[in-house]
């Protein structure tokens, strides 16, 4: 190592000036096939209030379980029309909403296979560095053996798994503090 990283600083309250141009709430607008999902949630602060002007960034594999990145060495199909990146800003009530396709499974360490998941990064005023979490899918047998979920204390795993609502959308809140505080990763 010859250099040290630049320190992180908060995005502050005015991030939309920088982030809006590349906001994407429909990740799979031109995606061929796969299970389409609508994801709806709220970003909640320590008082349980919706946090506006936060940004939620999603990174995911395609339906075959391959990332649209040259760093992914797997011999699986790439969908040219699917970048796998989404970015939504929370509204005045802290709500966020995006649509995508359910990703396939990608390999994990030690010969494991990861359950379908979205890697989710959160930036907002009051966060000096991003939070990193994951959203997993409900009614998914692969969650049981997921190498990352296994590291999460059993009584907190539910914070990473979306619920299917009566509207058939997936509901998943990001709770910054409190009883149902979302699991965030030390990465």
């Amino acid at each position: 190592m010859s250099l040290l990283s630049t320190p992180s600083q908060t995005v502050g309250p005015f991030l939309s000036i920088g982030f809006s141009a590349l906001a994407v709430d429909a990740l799979a607008a031109e995606h061929p096939g796969g299970e389409r999902v609508l994801i709806h949630g709220r970003l909640l602060d320590g008082d349980g209030k919706g946090a506006s002007e936060g940004v939620i960034e999603v990174w995911q594999a395609n339906v075959h379980g391959r990332y649209a990145s040259p760093e992914d060495p797997q011999n699986k199909p790439i969908d040219r029309a699917f970048r796998g990146f989404g970015r939504v800003l929370t509204n005045a009530d802290g709500e966020f909403r995006f649509s995508t396709v359910k990703p396939g499974r990608v390999p994990g360490p030690g010969g494991t296979s990861q359950a379908p998941h979205l890697a989710v990064t959160v930036f907002m005023r009051g966060l000096l560095k991003q939070l990193l979490t994951r959203m997993y899918f409900p009614e998914e047998a692969a969650n049981e053996a997921d190498p990352v979920l296994k590291r999460v204390p059993a009584d907190r795993r539910h914070t990473l798994i979306a619920r299917r609502g009566a509207d058939d959308a997936l509901h998943w809140n990001i709770v910054l503090q409190g009883e149902d505080e979302t699991v965030f990763f030390d990465f």
Partner: peptide
């Protein structure tokens, strides 16, 4: 603003997997 927004529970250590070493292009 960090007081109501910083996580209060332990962070879970994440091994870097394909999901973390890849990123959007």
């Amino acid at each position: 603003s960090t007081i109501k927004r910083a996580p209060t529970r332990s962070l879970v250590w994440l091994p870097h997997t394909l999901s973390e070493i890849t990123g959007p292009v």
